[in-house]
Structures are given as structure tokens and as C-alpha cells.
Design a protein around this nucleic acid. Structure first.
Lengths: 404, 404
DNA sequence: CTGTTAGCGCCTTCAT
DNA sequence: ATGAAGGCGCTAACAG
């Protein structure tokens, strides 16, 4: 035990030194005969040791196949992971199918990268076997961004329960009612701020209702009185189809609710004979939009215009019109929502929203939250973009093809 | 210090019990007067304690605002994070702008979710300040998926240096030449498998060259002899424009290289008077495609057909044709690559690739790697889909508009 | 400039 | 069915 050349201090020789194939900082230190702190410093604080020694450290590290400090251990120690989670309530499969979502994510990722933060995609598995809350509960992240979650959902509660910096996108910030208190019983440390959920939460939204109002009014100004509405999902999976008043009352997704409200407000302000015919798409895809349109027009042939809650749905409506041989806009006017990059090529009249800016704002809000500040909620404007897919209602039989 | 009721064993009373607002498993245990193991078991192995006790544990945990075991600490202990990193070599900003990438990611995420794995997006920052390797070096992940990286790049080396389960997409698996050995000096543990990079790496690709060959041949069969080629980036940022032979020799992105090879092979097999005019898009966006097309047609007016390395680029080409008043396909044939969901609406002739299946295969390969197996490399087929954007070269002045 | 020490929060044999 | 103890791999004080 007391040999002259500093024996490796301690206990279990069986697994201490190398075993499982992965080199550790300590082994590098030992190989060099320096302390672990020195090796650590070589990586984290170059100014704490001579350049020469640092070189030597890095060199032998390389020779040993040591790839640098384990990120996990480092995160644990530092208390930060450098990762921000993005929460979806749908299987990622078609979260990505929506260009608006992809665009948003892109600009979000971009703005976060400036602070060396990476994005972790957290989606509820479609598989009913696995716990849909597990991803948000079990993710090692410094902050959470909720992209879409039903109001009052378990998912949203699970997010808030983590009481960490959180940005809610297109969704009202929930009031901090009862539920899982995170204020410890012993509230006698005056110096730590009263751990308020709200202080760590920020919201970024667009003027959903305003844009919808513009869209509906545009159609009414054009003389349409029988207007079909292609709704995004009103609530968690059910299957689409005509919207009953009861179903409408249960609307759980905020953007859907707001857009619907906008349509209805415009209606209320217009001529009383105007009527809306609602149908719900099962998912936000062109083919669902197509199906819905086909069904809607079959059951309500008097419809001359369509309000679609997304450009993706509108794209499907356009296909349906073509299938049916209905000329757009003369026999059928179509209006979308989002203004995707491809929508101009389609000549689609639509409601524009600042998708990229939204992503950037969300990123900035997260950064501020991480810095201990509480940024004010943000509300971004929407605009109507009139293109070729809307026209005045034909008073008689419509011409069979567009002019020009 | 020596009070009767078991004094908290150790040293610093100032920060031991609660301080920083976040509850730990130990505090829950103490509050209940049970051991930490019991609390841990309540979460991880319900069968190890009475249902009643478990309830009590979970209850007080809730009251205290304890949200369950810290994921980070748990990962460190268990040696697994439940996260797979996806590596891009470009700023995520426009990784997401490409629907093919988004689709791939969606199906990848989907297939990984079955195993409760989440995706972490790792992109090299556009910002030249920050180290582009930091994300891949510093990410806490169980495996890495390389979606696009230049051959022989630092980035790719950094990935391999982590020597963990890795799937290379549309990219050859590099030979394990020298570089950072990860085989420790002491190679005398016969039971641990000789840590071979190759054993932890798998590849999934499509038949890029084959599809390209089909596309080029199609055009040549149609009689085109002056064919423009819109290339994806050949290598890391340079700015686009005409492709010099020198630049072509340096092509660093595998899909680009392969598609180009396919085009050239078809050319070599056809009539000798056929010529290719190459230009490189700065980025894979419609507007870059448009710009390239405009420039290319201006400098080479004899071109009657375009081979685009992506549908996104082709979409730009279509816009350019419209701007120029060139009728497609009669005055100009256009052919894409990828067959995006929207391409059918555009009547674009293109090379189809199994984007979703690719994502799924990559996910499966990763799962096998994680399970200790070494799945064989996979190569998926491509197909030519002929639609309305290609036609025989007009022998005289082309008609000004398409038929019916 | 370098070394020692004390955990970060948890899980898991091993004993009881 | 429950408790005690030893790390996982690293970093940040603090001494020398």
C-alpha cells in the first residue's frame, strides 16, 4: 500500500481502470500523470495551463481515443443541456408534411443556433401503447416550446409541470390554477423569486381571427352567400366530416377555434342570408382537403366558395374542383390560410402569416427566458393576399373556362 | 451538531437540503422518512414495493412539486439518453425548406418513436464564429444519423470519431483509415469485441445514378441534343454559377456526384452530338432554380431541355420558363428529381425516390445497431415518372401553347 | 500553474 | 419489502 511511486489510490481494481471500451477523463489524466482537473482545464479553460502542457494533454487524449468530455456528464454537472424541446401533439409523421410547420421549425432552429442551442423533437407517439406524456416528461432539455397542443390537455399540463422556460406558440398562456404546485412547502427563502409559472412562460401568436375575418369578408363582398368551410382538426382524433354544433363547442385547438371565430364574426357583420357549411378534415393534408371538398359539394351543391383553414387543405380543394370540372374561380372561389411558398404558383388567394418571423420570435423569447427575463407576449399580424382563386359569384351559369 | 434525531450526515448545511428551487428524489425520500431507493423504485419498478406505499410516495412527490426523476441524471446513470442526433451540414434554415428532407425526417422520427427515441437536430451553424463541429461533438445521443455531409469533411470525421451507432444516408460508408483510433492501447481484454467502426455503422442509399441515367436517356430519346443541367451544390458554399471542369472534379456531396455521373453515363451511351451545359445552384430553392435557368438559357439559347437535380429546382425552372414565355414542354422540357408530393400537380416529369421508406429504413438500421447487430447496407431503387413537362424536341419553331 | 475534494441526481447490487 | 453505499464522468471551488 505504501510503495514509493504513488499507487493508484483506491479500491476495486476490477472495473476501475478501463473495462467498458469508453475512455474517461480520469484515465487520460492517469496516463499522463497529471490530475483530472488539468485535463478538464485543457478542454474547458485553456488559459489555466501552459500551452505546451495543453498540447500534450490533447495529444495523448487523441492517442488513447478519448473524444473529449462526455456531454452527458458535463450537462449534469453544469446544470444545462443546450437543448430545447419542441412539443407536437401529433405524430411527427405529418407534422413535417405541413410546409408551414417545417418553415417555422427551420427559422426557430436558426435563431436558437445563434446561442448554440439545438432542437429536440418531442412528439406524442401515435402508438397508443406508449405513454404520450413520456417524451415531454423524460426529455433532458433547458426549455420547452409548445407548437400545438389541445387546450386543457394532459400534454399541456405535463409541459407546465416541468416548470421550466416555456414558449407557447399560437396558444394562450394558461392561468396558473392549482394543479401541480411547484412551490415547495418551505417558502422561507426570501431571496429566490417566488417560482411563478407565468414568469417562465411566454407566448407568441398570430392574429388568427383577424385573418379569418378578412377572408370571409372578402368572399361576402364578392357576393357569395353559400360558403363551405374546410376546418382543420377541431380536437384530438375523431375522424373528420360535417361539423355538428356540439363538436364545434368542443373545439380544442386554438388556431382552429380562432379562425372559426373570425369567419363567424365576419358573417355576423354581413348580410343575414349568408350561410356557412362546416366540415372537418381528419388531417391537414391535400388529400383530406380533396375528400372533404368532394363530400361537401355533393351534399351542398349551392356552395360557390370555400374558406380553407390552411393552404394545404386549399390545395386539395383545388384538386377536387379540377376533378369535378368546376372552374376556379368562376364556378368556385377558394381561399386558403398560411400563404405557403408554393401558393403563389397556384394563384391561390389566401391569408398570409409571418411564419418565419414567428419562428424567430419564439427563439428570441426562449433566449430571454433562459436569461432570466420575462419577455412580453407577442402577437403578429396577418394579411389577406388576393390572387386568382377568388371572384364574384356568378349570377347565372358560370363560363366554362377562365378568361385570358 | 450532535442532536438526537440523526443529524444530516455531512458538511455544508447551507445548500444541502433545498436551496435552488428544484426538488430531488432524496428530499422526497426524507420528507416521507423512507430511503431513496424506495422512491426510485416507486418510479422505476412498481413491483418492488407495496401499491399503498407507492401511492403515498407519488402523492407526496406531487405535493412537493417533484416532477419525477431528473432525466439527465437518469441518463448518466443508465448510460443511454433515448436521443438520436441527425446531422446536417447546412444551416437548418433551408434544410427544412426542402420538402424531401422534411418528409424523410418525418418518417424517420416516426420509426424511431416506436422505440421511444427522439430526434435531436444537429446543424452546423451558418455563423462562422462558432465551431461547426461543436454540435456533433457535444450532443448527448445514443446514435447519429448523417443526412448530408461532404465526403472527407471534418464533420464526417467528427461523427466517426464519436464511434457510436451511426447511419449514413445517401453516402458511402468511409473506410476506417487511420485517423482517430479508438482502440485503446491496452488491447488485452479478449471479451470485448474489437471496437470496429464499421461494425457500428450502416448505410442507406438510393440508386441516385440509376435514376439520373433514366432521366437523361428519356430526354435523349426525345431528340434533345442541347441539355442544361441544374446541379445541386457540388461542395461546401461557393456561390453557384456555371460549372467548370475543375469544380466538377471537386464534387463533395455524394448525391450530386452520383446524379451527375448518371447523366454523363447516359450521354456516353447516346448520340455523340449531345451536349450537357452544367450550372450549379447556390442552394436548393425554387428561386435559385429560377435564377440559374434564366442565366443558363441566356448564355446557351440552344438548350431545349433541362435536367434538374431536384424538384425544388425544377419548380424554379418552371417559373423561369413562364417568365420567359417559353412553353413547357413544347419549347422547353423540364425534368426533376425526388417526386415531391406537389410535383404531380405541376405535371412535372421527374425521378421518383422512396423518401418515406428511406426514412423508415434508416430508423430500422439504427434500431438494429443499437441492439448490437450490424445490418447490411441498403440500396433503394429509383424510377422515372413521365408526366407533362417533357416532350420531343420541336424540329422547327415550337407552337406557342400546349394542346388541349 | 496544478492537485484535491465534493458533489450534480440518480440507479442498483448487496444486505437486511 | 426496504435500506445503505458506491459510483456514472465531469467541473468548480479552493488549496498549494
Amino acid at each position: 500500500m505504501s510503495s514509493s511511486s504513488a499507487p493508484p489510490s483506491s479500491a476495486s481494481p476490477s472495473r476501475a481502470s478501463q473495462s467498458s471500451g469508453r475512455i474517461t477523463l480520469r484515465e487520460v489524466a492517469r496516463a499522463l500523470g497529471v490530475s483530472v482537473a488539468t485535463v478538464s482545464n485543457a478542454y474547458n479553460r485553456p488559459d489555466q495551463l501552459s500551452a505546451a502542457l495543453r498540447e500534450r494533454v490533447l495529444d495523448t487524449a487523441r492517442t488513447l481515443g478519448y473524444g473529449g468530455p462526455d456531454p452527458l456528464a458535463r450537462s449534469l454537472r453544469r446544470g444545462r443541456t443546450g437543448v430545447i424541446g419542441v412539443v407536437y401533439d401529433a405524430p411527427l409523421e405529418y407534422a413535417f408534411a405541413d410546409p408551414a410547420a417545417a418553415l417555422f421549425l427551420g427559422s426557430l432552429a436558426q435563431s436558437l443556433q445563434a446561442a448554440s442551442l439545438n432542437l429536440l423533437l418531442l412528439a406524442s407517439p401515435g402508438d397508443p401503447q406508449t405513454d404520450p406524456l413520456a417524451p415531454v416528461q423524460g426529455a433532458s432539455v433547458d426549455g420547452l416550446i409548445v407548437y400545438s397542443a389541445a387546450q386543457d390537455s394532459e400534454l399541456l399540463r405535463a409541459v407546465m409541470a416541468r416548470s421550466m422556460p416555456t414558449v407557447l406558440v399560437d396558444q394562450p398562456v394558461p392561468v396558473d390554477q392549482a394543479g401541480s404546485v411547484n412551490q415547495p412547502v418551505l417558502a422561507d427563502q426570501p431571496d429566490l423569486p417566488a417560482q411563478d409559472h407565468r414568469a417562465q412562460t411566454s407566448g407568441v401568436q398570430i392574429d388568427d381571427a383577424g385573418g379569418a375575418r378578412l377572408a370571409a369578408r372578402h368572399l361576402m363582398d364578392l357576393g357569395h352567400t353559400h360558403i363551405g368551410v374546410l376546418c382543420l382538426e377541431l380536437g384530438p382524433r375523431q375522424g373528420g366530416g360535417p361539423v355538428t354544433p356540439e363538436r364545434e363547442r368542443q373545439v380544442a385547438y386554438h388556431p382552429t377555434a380562432e379562425r372559426l371565430r373570425g369567419y363567424r364574426e365576419a358573417l355576423a357583420a354581413g348580410p343575414s342570408e349568408t350561410r356557412l357549411f362546416l366540415t372537418e378534415a381528419e388531417r391537414n393534408t391535400p388529400s383530406d382537403g380533396e375528400t372533404c371538398t368532394l363530400e361537401l359539394l355533393r351534399s351542398e351543391p349551392e356552395i360557390t366558395a370555400l374558406l380553407c383553414m390552411s393552404d394545404v387543405l386549399a390545395q386539395g380543394a383545388l384538386r377536387a374542383a379540377q376533378t369535378l370540372g368546376l372552374s376556379v374561380p368562376h364556378r368556385l372561389s377558394v381561399i386558403g390560410y398560411d400563404d405557403l411558398p408554393g401558393s403563389a404558383d397556384l394563384k391561390l388567394t389566401t391569408v398570409w402569416q409571418p411564419t418565419s418571423e414567428k419562428g424567430q420570435r419564439v427563439g428570441e423569447a426562449m433566449l430571454e427566458l433562459l436569461g432570466g427575463q420575462t419577455p412580453p407576449d407577442v402577437r403578429l399580424p396577418t394579411r389577406l393576399v388576393v390572387r386568382g382563386s377568388t371572384a364574384a359569384r356568378a349570377t347565372t351559369d358560370a363560363p366554362l373556362h377562365p378568361p385570358g
